[in-house]
Protein backbone atom coordinates (compact mmCIF):
# COMPACT_ATOMS: atom_id res chain seq x y z
CA UNK A 1 0.00 0.00 0.00
CA UNK A 2 1.37 3.32 -1.03
CA UNK A 3 1.21 6.35 1.18
CA UNK A 4 1.80 9.59 -0.69
CA UNK A 5 2.75 12.92 0.89
CA UNK A 6 1.62 16.10 -0.85
CA UNK A 7 3.20 19.37 0.28
CA UNK A 8 0.74 22.21 -0.16
CA UNK A 9 1.60 25.88 -0.40
CA UNK A 10 0.09 28.74 1.50
CA UNK A 11 0.63 32.47 1.33
CA UNK A 12 -0.64 34.96 3.90
CA UNK A 13 -2.43 32.21 5.77
CA UNK A 14 -4.47 30.84 2.88
CA UNK A 15 -3.89 27.79 0.67
CA UNK A 16 -2.58 28.65 -2.78
CA UNK A 17 -4.29 27.79 -6.03
CA UNK A 18 -3.39 24.43 -7.47
CA UNK A 19 -4.02 22.46 -4.26
CA UNK A 20 -6.81 20.45 -5.90
CA UNK A 21 -4.64 19.51 -8.89
CA UNK A 22 -1.76 18.40 -6.68
CA UNK A 23 -4.14 16.36 -4.52
CA UNK A 24 -5.54 14.74 -7.67
CA UNK A 25 -2.04 13.68 -8.73
CA UNK A 26 -1.34 12.27 -5.26
CA UNK A 27 -4.68 10.45 -5.28
CA UNK A 28 -3.92 8.94 -8.68
CA UNK A 29 -0.70 7.38 -7.33
CA UNK A 30 -2.22 6.25 -4.06
CA UNK A 31 -5.32 4.72 -5.66
CA UNK A 32 -3.17 2.57 -7.94
CA UNK A 33 -2.75 0.19 -5.00
CA UNK A 34 -5.31 1.22 -2.45
CA UNK A 35 -3.04 3.63 -0.62
CA UNK A 36 -3.56 6.85 1.26
CA UNK A 37 -2.69 10.51 0.81
CA UNK A 38 -1.43 12.85 3.50
CA UNK A 39 -1.43 16.56 2.80
CA UNK A 40 1.05 18.66 4.76
CA UNK A 41 0.60 22.40 5.25
CA UNK A 42 3.18 24.70 6.85
CA UNK A 43 2.25 27.97 8.51
CA UNK A 44 2.73 30.20 11.51
CA UNK A 45 -0.89 29.83 12.56
CA UNK A 46 -4.17 28.62 11.12
CA UNK A 47 -4.21 28.20 7.36
CA UNK A 48 -7.50 28.96 5.63
CA UNK A 49 -8.82 26.32 3.25
CA UNK A 50 -7.44 23.16 4.84
CA UNK A 51 -10.96 22.02 5.76
CA UNK A 52 -11.53 21.53 2.03
CA UNK A 53 -8.59 19.13 1.59
CA UNK A 54 -10.57 16.01 2.49
CA UNK A 55 -12.92 16.67 -0.41
CA UNK A 56 -9.87 17.07 -2.66
CA UNK A 57 -8.58 13.64 -1.63
CA UNK A 58 -6.58 13.96 1.61
CA UNK A 59 -7.02 11.09 4.05
CA UNK A 60 -5.11 13.12 6.63
CA UNK A 61 -4.08 16.76 6.80
CA UNK A 62 -0.83 17.32 8.66
CA UNK A 63 -0.37 20.84 9.99
CA UNK A 64 3.19 21.91 10.76
CA UNK A 65 3.13 25.17 12.68
CA UNK A 66 6.21 27.27 13.41
CA UNK A 67 6.80 31.01 13.78
CA UNK A 68 9.37 30.88 10.97
CA UNK A 69 6.79 29.47 8.57
CA UNK A 70 4.85 32.71 8.15
CA UNK A 71 6.84 33.08 4.94
CA UNK A 72 8.39 30.30 2.91
CA UNK A 73 11.03 28.70 5.15
CA UNK A 74 12.80 25.96 3.20
CA UNK A 75 15.02 24.93 6.11
CA UNK A 76 12.03 24.22 8.39
CA UNK A 77 10.19 22.42 5.62
CA UNK A 78 13.13 20.23 4.57
CA UNK A 79 13.79 19.24 8.19
CA UNK A 80 10.14 18.36 8.79
CA UNK A 81 9.54 16.46 5.58
CA UNK A 82 12.84 14.57 5.93
CA UNK A 83 11.78 13.49 9.43
CA UNK A 84 8.66 11.75 8.08
CA UNK A 85 9.79 10.86 4.55
CA UNK A 86 10.39 7.23 5.54
CA UNK A 87 6.61 6.70 5.80
CA UNK A 88 5.96 7.47 2.15
CA UNK A 89 6.34 6.01 -1.34
CA UNK A 90 6.56 9.45 -2.93
CA UNK A 91 6.58 13.11 -1.96
CA UNK A 92 4.81 15.58 -4.22
CA UNK A 93 5.05 19.36 -4.53
CA UNK A 94 3.52 21.66 -7.11
CA UNK A 95 5.94 22.72 -9.86
CA UNK A 96 5.72 26.36 -8.80
CA UNK A 97 8.65 28.66 -7.99
CA UNK A 98 8.35 27.55 -4.37
CA UNK A 99 7.75 23.86 -5.03
CA UNK A 100 10.68 23.68 -7.44
CA UNK A 101 12.94 25.39 -4.91
CA UNK A 102 11.93 22.96 -2.20
CA UNK A 103 11.83 19.59 -4.01
CA UNK A 104 15.56 19.19 -4.78
CA UNK A 105 16.53 20.23 -1.27
CA UNK A 106 14.34 17.50 0.21
CA UNK A 107 15.70 14.98 -2.29
CA UNK A 108 19.30 15.84 -1.46
CA UNK A 109 18.58 15.65 2.28
CA UNK A 110 16.88 12.26 2.06
CA UNK A 111 19.10 10.85 -0.71
CA UNK A 112 16.20 10.43 -3.13
CA UNK A 113 15.81 11.14 -6.83
CA UNK A 114 13.92 14.23 -7.88
CA UNK A 115 11.64 14.76 -10.88
CA UNK A 116 10.78 18.32 -11.84
CA UNK A 117 7.97 19.78 -13.97
CA UNK A 118 6.33 16.40 -14.21
CA UNK A 119 3.28 16.13 -16.47
CA UNK A 120 2.44 12.45 -15.83
CA UNK A 121 2.92 10.11 -12.82
CA UNK A 122 2.19 6.42 -12.43
CA UNK A 123 3.27 3.48 -10.27
CA UNK A 124 5.69 1.21 -12.10
CA UNK A 125 6.61 -1.76 -9.95
CA UNK A 126 8.90 -0.52 -7.21
CA UNK A 127 9.50 2.73 -9.02
CA UNK A 128 7.41 5.73 -9.91
CA UNK A 129 7.31 6.49 -13.60
CA UNK A 130 7.20 10.16 -14.55
CA UNK A 131 7.01 11.95 -17.86
CA UNK A 132 8.36 15.47 -18.24
CA UNK A 133 9.20 17.92 -21.01
CA UNK A 134 12.90 18.43 -21.77
CA UNK A 135 14.74 20.40 -24.50
CA UNK A 136 12.26 23.29 -24.14
CA UNK A 137 9.32 20.97 -24.66
CA UNK A 138 10.70 19.58 -27.92
CA UNK A 139 11.12 16.15 -26.31
CA UNK A 140 9.21 14.23 -23.61
CA UNK A 141 11.41 12.25 -21.22
CA UNK A 142 10.21 9.21 -19.27
CA UNK A 143 12.06 8.33 -16.07
CA UNK A 144 11.69 5.62 -13.43
CA UNK A 145 12.41 7.03 -9.99
CA UNK A 146 13.38 4.60 -7.20
CA UNK A 147 13.19 5.04 -3.43
CA UNK A 148 10.91 7.78 -2.14
CA UNK A 149 11.23 10.26 -5.00
CA UNK A 150 10.40 13.94 -4.66
CA UNK A 151 8.26 14.98 -7.59
CA UNK A 152 7.25 18.51 -8.60
CA UNK A 153 4.02 18.20 -10.60
CA UNK A 154 2.92 20.84 -13.10
CA UNK A 155 -0.36 22.32 -11.85
CA UNK A 156 -1.97 21.94 -15.26
CA UNK A 157 -0.92 18.30 -15.71
CA UNK A 158 -3.66 16.65 -13.71
CA UNK A 159 -7.28 17.76 -13.59
CA UNK A 160 -8.77 18.36 -10.16
CA UNK A 161 -11.28 15.74 -9.06
CA UNK A 162 -13.29 15.21 -5.92
CA UNK A 163 -12.51 12.20 -3.79
CA UNK A 164 -14.40 12.76 -0.55
CA UNK A 165 -11.82 11.51 1.95
CA UNK A 166 -11.81 12.22 5.67
CA UNK A 167 -9.15 14.93 5.71
CA UNK A 168 -8.61 14.36 9.44
CA UNK A 169 -6.36 17.10 10.80
CA UNK A 170 -3.29 16.06 12.81
CA UNK A 171 -0.33 18.10 13.90
CA UNK A 172 3.24 17.28 13.02
CA UNK A 173 6.24 18.69 14.87
CA UNK A 174 8.78 20.85 13.12
CA UNK A 175 12.08 19.42 14.37
CA UNK A 176 15.12 21.52 15.33
CA UNK A 177 16.59 23.09 12.25
CA UNK A 178 19.26 25.58 11.27
CA UNK A 179 17.78 28.53 9.46
CA UNK A 180 20.20 29.33 6.67
CA UNK A 181 17.92 31.43 4.48
CA UNK A 182 15.44 34.04 5.69
CA UNK A 183 12.60 35.13 3.46
CA UNK A 184 12.09 38.73 4.54
CA UNK A 185 8.94 39.44 2.59
CA UNK A 186 6.89 39.09 -0.55
CA UNK A 187 5.94 42.09 -2.63
CA UNK A 188 3.00 41.65 -4.93
CA UNK A 189 3.50 44.01 -7.81
CA UNK A 190 -0.03 44.62 -9.06
CA UNK A 191 -2.57 43.93 -6.36
CA UNK A 192 -5.17 41.57 -7.70
CA UNK A 193 -3.39 40.96 -11.01
CA UNK A 194 -3.41 37.32 -12.05
CA UNK A 195 -0.04 35.67 -12.66
CA UNK A 196 0.41 34.20 -16.14
CA UNK A 197 1.43 30.89 -14.59
CA UNK A 198 -1.96 30.60 -12.88
CA UNK A 199 -4.35 32.19 -15.36
CA UNK A 200 -7.16 30.40 -17.21
CA UNK A 201 -6.85 32.81 -20.13
CA UNK A 202 -3.69 34.58 -21.31
CA UNK A 203 -3.57 37.40 -23.82
CA UNK A 204 0.04 37.81 -24.89
CA UNK A 205 1.38 40.82 -26.77
CA UNK A 206 4.50 40.95 -28.91
CA UNK A 207 6.53 43.40 -30.90
CA UNK A 208 3.62 43.79 -33.30
CA UNK A 209 2.07 46.15 -30.73
CA UNK A 210 4.64 48.68 -31.89
CA UNK A 211 4.64 50.75 -28.71
CA UNK A 212 4.36 50.02 -24.97
CA UNK A 213 1.19 52.10 -24.72
CA UNK A 214 -0.58 49.72 -27.05
CA UNK A 215 -0.53 47.09 -24.30
CA UNK A 216 -3.82 48.78 -23.45
CA UNK A 217 -5.35 46.71 -26.28
CA UNK A 218 -4.14 43.57 -24.54
CA UNK A 219 -5.34 44.72 -21.12
CA UNK A 220 -8.81 45.46 -22.44
CA UNK A 221 -9.24 41.93 -23.74
CA UNK A 222 -7.87 40.57 -20.44
CA UNK A 223 -10.44 42.68 -18.59
CA UNK A 224 -13.21 41.33 -20.82
CA UNK A 225 -12.43 37.85 -19.45
CA UNK A 226 -12.85 38.96 -15.85
CA UNK A 227 -10.80 37.77 -12.90
CA UNK A 228 -8.92 34.75 -14.22
CA UNK A 229 -7.09 36.23 -17.20
CA UNK A 230 -3.57 37.61 -17.38
CA UNK A 231 -1.33 39.68 -19.65
CA UNK A 232 1.49 37.72 -21.30
CA UNK A 233 4.39 38.96 -23.38
CA UNK A 234 7.16 37.86 -25.72
CA UNK A 235 10.77 38.32 -24.77
CA UNK A 236 11.22 40.98 -27.43
CA UNK A 237 8.87 43.36 -25.64
CA UNK A 238 10.17 42.46 -22.18
CA UNK A 239 13.75 43.12 -23.28
CA UNK A 240 12.60 46.41 -24.80
CA UNK A 241 11.27 47.37 -21.37
CA UNK A 242 7.64 47.63 -22.48
CA UNK A 243 6.45 45.34 -19.70
CA UNK A 244 7.89 43.47 -16.69
CA UNK A 245 9.72 40.16 -16.94
CA UNK A 246 7.02 38.50 -14.83
CA UNK A 247 4.80 38.54 -17.91
CA UNK A 248 7.26 36.81 -20.23
CA UNK A 249 6.16 33.50 -21.66
CA UNK A 250 8.70 31.12 -23.09
CA UNK A 251 11.92 29.38 -22.49
CA UNK A 252 13.49 32.15 -20.42
CA UNK A 253 10.12 33.22 -19.06
CA UNK A 254 7.25 31.20 -17.71
CA UNK A 255 5.86 27.93 -18.94
CA UNK A 256 2.11 28.22 -19.10
CA UNK A 257 -0.77 25.93 -19.99
CA UNK A 258 -3.94 28.03 -19.82
CA UNK A 259 -7.23 26.89 -21.31
CA UNK A 260 -7.07 29.72 -23.83
CA UNK A 261 -4.03 31.59 -25.15
CA UNK A 262 -4.11 34.60 -27.47
CA UNK A 263 -0.87 35.49 -29.26
CA UNK A 264 -1.24 39.03 -30.54
CA UNK A 265 1.54 40.44 -32.72
CA UNK A 266 3.76 37.57 -31.59
CA UNK A 267 5.70 35.81 -34.36
CA UNK A 268 5.90 32.46 -32.57
CA UNK A 269 9.65 31.93 -32.21
CA UNK A 270 10.64 28.47 -30.99
CA UNK A 271 11.60 29.87 -27.56
CA UNK A 272 8.18 31.47 -27.20
CA UNK A 273 6.43 28.26 -28.25
CA UNK A 274 8.42 26.39 -25.60
CA UNK A 275 6.44 28.24 -22.97
CA UNK A 276 2.92 27.90 -24.32
CA UNK A 277 2.57 25.03 -26.77
CA UNK A 278 0.60 22.93 -24.28
CA UNK A 279 -2.13 25.55 -23.90
CA UNK A 280 -5.64 24.17 -24.41
CA UNK A 281 -6.68 26.41 -27.27
CA UNK A 282 -4.33 28.81 -29.06
CA UNK A 283 -5.55 31.83 -31.02
CA UNK A 284 -3.13 33.86 -33.14
CA UNK A 285 -3.65 37.34 -34.51
CA UNK A 286 -0.89 38.39 -36.87
CA UNK A 287 -0.74 40.32 -40.10
CA UNK A 288 1.82 37.94 -41.59
CA UNK A 289 0.05 34.81 -42.80
CA UNK A 290 3.37 32.95 -42.79
CA UNK A 291 4.18 33.73 -39.15
CA UNK A 292 5.23 30.49 -37.37
CA UNK A 293 2.64 31.08 -34.65
CA UNK A 294 -0.05 29.94 -37.10
CA UNK A 295 1.55 26.47 -37.13
CA UNK A 296 0.57 25.88 -33.50
CA UNK A 297 -2.58 28.00 -33.41
CA UNK A 298 -5.97 26.28 -33.40
CA UNK A 299 -7.55 29.43 -34.79
CA UNK A 300 -5.90 32.28 -36.60
CA UNK A 301 -6.91 35.68 -37.85
CA UNK A 302 -4.63 37.20 -40.45
CA UNK A 303 -4.87 40.93 -40.05
CA UNK A 304 -3.87 44.15 -38.37
CA UNK A 305 -4.14 43.76 -34.62
CA UNK A 306 -5.12 47.43 -34.23
CA UNK A 307 -8.19 46.73 -36.29
CA UNK A 308 -8.98 43.28 -34.86
CA UNK A 309 -8.43 43.75 -31.11
CA UNK A 310 -11.13 46.36 -30.35
CA UNK A 311 -13.74 44.36 -32.27
CA UNK A 312 -12.63 41.12 -30.62
CA UNK A 313 -12.77 42.66 -27.14
CA UNK A 314 -16.34 43.88 -27.71
CA UNK A 315 -17.36 40.48 -29.09
CA UNK A 316 -15.88 38.63 -26.11
CA UNK A 317 -17.69 40.96 -23.71
CA UNK A 318 -20.94 40.25 -25.50
CA UNK A 319 -20.38 36.50 -25.69
CA UNK A 320 -19.69 36.35 -21.97
CA UNK A 321 -22.79 38.22 -20.81
Amino acid sequence: MAAILAILEQRDGALRKGAAELMAAARQLADADGGTVDAIVFGSGNVGGIDGLGAMGADRVLTATHAECAHYCPDAMVATVASIAGNYRAILTAATATGKDLAPRIAARTGAPCGMDVIGVAMQGDAIRVTRPVYAGKVIQTLDLAGTPVIAVRPSAVAASSAGKAGAVETVTVPEFTKRLTVTGVSTADQGAVDVAEARVIVAGGRGLGDPKHFALIEELVAAFGGDAAVGASRAVVDAGWIGHGHQVGQTGKTVAPELYFAVGVSGAIQHLAGMRTAGTIVAINRDKDAPIFKVADYGIVGDLFEVMPVLTEAVKKART
Binding site: A112, V134, G137, I140, T142, D144, F294, V296, G300, I301
Partner: peptide, 25 residues
Protein backbone atom coordinates in the same frame (compact mmCIF):
# COMPACT_ATOMS: atom_id res chain seq x y z
CA UNK B 1 18.20 5.99 -8.60
CA UNK B 2 16.65 7.68 -11.56
CA UNK B 3 16.75 5.69 -14.78
CA UNK B 4 15.84 6.78 -18.26
CA UNK B 5 13.04 4.79 -19.84
CA UNK B 6 13.12 6.73 -23.07
CA UNK B 7 12.67 9.91 -25.03
CA UNK B 8 9.77 10.64 -27.32
CA UNK B 9 8.60 13.52 -29.43
CA UNK B 10 5.62 15.34 -27.96
CA UNK B 11 2.27 14.76 -29.63
CA UNK B 12 1.80 17.18 -32.52
CA UNK B 13 -0.90 19.75 -32.03
CA UNK B 14 -3.74 18.96 -34.42
CA UNK B 15 -3.59 21.30 -37.40
CA UNK B 16 -5.41 24.54 -36.79
CA UNK B 17 -7.04 26.83 -39.28
CA UNK B 18 -7.17 30.47 -40.30
CA UNK B 19 -10.73 31.57 -39.59
CA UNK B 20 -10.46 34.66 -41.76
CA UNK B 21 -8.89 38.02 -42.38
CA UNK B 22 -9.13 41.23 -40.36
CA UNK B 23 -11.92 42.33 -38.03
CA UNK B 24 -14.49 40.64 -40.28
CA UNK B 25 -13.19 37.28 -39.00
Amino acid sequence: QSTLVGLALPPERPAGRIVGEGAAA
